[in-house]
Amino acid sequence: MAANGDTQTVSEYIVHHLTNLTYGKLPGGYERYDGSIVPEAGQWTMAHGADEMTAMGFNAVHVDSMIWSVGLGLIFCWVFRRVAVRASAGVPTGLVNFIEMVVEFVDGTVKDTFHGRNPLIAPLALTIFVWVFLMNLMDLIPVDLIPHSLMLVGVEYQKIVPSTDPNITMGMAIGVFVLMLFYSIKVKGFGFVKELTLNPFNHPLFIPINLFMEVVGLLAKPFSLGLRLFGNMYAGEMIFILIAALFSVGLFWLLPAALLQVGWAIFHILVITLQAFIFMVLTIVYLSMAHEDH
């Protein structure tokens, strides 16, 4: 677990675990970690250390988050597509049975919450539920296993839980937000403007106040969606890292740390499922609200 041998402190260890593998564009004139100066035009490179990441600003990609997130998404697509090809009205067996159970669960949740008729909602909910669950599931893999293995082959940073990256959770939340806006306008048309301006005080004088309140309420939705997932997963990951750090404190702490690790992991099985479920249900609820005409 030591990046720099025995000299690494616990706080360095934690920070290291919370740093993404970043590829981005350094601005011109920036002095790099080894003293070299970036050319005027800027330079696309792997970031080394938190300072360089900050310097990159928006022009950067968290390579680890993207790979794990897209990889898990592909696993979802591959497994479910295989089942979809094999699915028939006959007797389902094994994997088909399990996948159908998931589909049925999502379908039931959608039907309970969303009363309109929209063929997008159920597949959207299924994708969100399974994908977020898979991303959260990475949290249960021991925190040092993959980052340390990759470090041995020269990859400096690795954060394997995509949902502890706000970019990932907010990316999905913004996707849902765009859908909310799209369906609000599509279903309500001008009624959506009325909803924003004449609610809750139905008087022309109150339009600015109404607009401010409604817009804040509207913008709060994607943030509540994305940041809730991020916050929960980040905190959970942080506790795993702290427990992992506890192992290095001393022999006496081995047993308590192991017990804590097991306990938190078992509890976390509940958390990751619940967070995936909450993300899905909130998506359905928000889209359902977008479809409702007052």
Partner: peptide, 18 residues
């Protein structure tokens, strides 16, 4: 907590998977 291009990448992946 750096917001960067990952956000856009995830958005595209999200749309594609859905």
């Amino acid at each position: 907590m750096n917001i960067n291009l990952t956000l856009i990448g995830q958005l595209i992946a999200f749309v594609a998977f859905v």
